[in-house]
């Protein structure tokens, strides 16, 4: 297992580095040769950065909510009672097989623009709907990751826990789920990367995130070379965000592997 992981890492490392270096150097060289282009981009960078904070915010909230709900659903999928199992299985099967864009559209048009909570009108902005639209598939995927991880723990661990007097839920909480963390990290990371990239879809329902900002900039400046550079900037921004997360996960995996 660890040998396989090491090989994957070895394959990934130069590829990611080369991609980033080539893309980055291309853009820098271009801006150096065409300094007016660099100046325009510099003017638009704060606006783009503001857009990107929205992507980061949506992705973090969606994965956090998705993880919490997904773990509960994953445990429910293995419940001894069919009444508990069935709804979780149905939910997971439906939303694991739905495109993210469809769910974002659905969330945008199903939910009202404001909610009435205890007589107060609370706005329900589009970016929150995008969070919901992405948290739903995230939770379905995490349910499957959790279920798989729980099932991969040897039954002897349950025996040992029960032999000490742990109940089923105590065994899960203290013995089984903590051991699932290490096994779930790689698929969890994949999912987070896919959710982060999915945040760009929110531009289609009018959320002011990075891609939307890039569109704005491109429309306002009306220069072909700027349009190309601004979308390359968008690519680099996503890469610079996702790559360290993936490296951090690999670091965590290595640290946990020694146990």
């Amino acid at each position: 297992m660890s040998i396989v992981l090491k090989q994957e890492r070895a394959k990934q490392l130069p590829f990611g580095g080369i991609f980033a270096a080539v893309l980055g150097l291309t853009v820098i060289a271009w801006l150096f040769l065409n300094q007016s282009l660099g100046q325009v981009l510099l003017e638009w960078l704060p606006y783009l950065a503001k857009g990107f904070t929205m992507n980061v915010l949506i992705s973090i909230l969606a994965i956090a909510i998705g993880t919490l709900i997904g773990i509960v659903l994953g445990v429910m999928e293995l419940a001894p009672f069919a009444v508990v199992r069935a709804p979780a299985l149905v939910y997971v099967q439906i939303f694991r097989n739905a495109p993210h864009l469809v769910l974002i559209f659905a969330a945008t048009y199903i939910f009202p623009f404001e909610l009435v909570i205890f007589g107060n009108y609370v706005p329900f902005p589009d970016w929150v709907k995008a969070v919901v639209g992405l948290a739903i598939p995230a939770s379905a995927h995490i349910a499957e990751i959790t279920r798989g991880a729980i099932q991969s723990i040897p039954t002897a661990q349950w025996d040992a826990a029960q032999g000490l007097g742990f109940s089923r839920s105590q065994s899960l909480r203290w013995i089984i789920l903590p051991q699932c963390i290490k096994r779930s990290l790689p698929p969890w990371m994949n999912l987070y990367a896919s959710i982060t990239m999915g945040t760009a879809l929110a531009s289609l329902v009018g959320v002011h995130e990075l891609l939307h900002s890039a569109n704005d900039a491109s429309t306002a400046v009306q220069r072909t070379d700027f349009t190309v550079v601004v979308y390359l900037t968008v690519l680099i921004a996503f890469f610079l965000f996702c790559y360290p997360v993936s490296r951090f996960t690999q670091y965590l995996e290595r640290r946990l592997a020694s146990r």
């Binding site: 661990q157 025996d159 032999g163 000490l164 109940s167 051991q179």
Partner: peptide, 24 residues
């Protein structure tokens, strides 16, 4: 009930062939 059996198991230690320690 399982609760009653759990109460029993708290009073009885068991050691297994494969140790079954908690690796984490």
């Amino acid at each position: 009930t399982e609760t009653e059996r759990i109460a029993l198991r708290k009073r009885i230690g068991i050691v297994f062939q494969q140790f079954n320690l908690f690796p984490h």
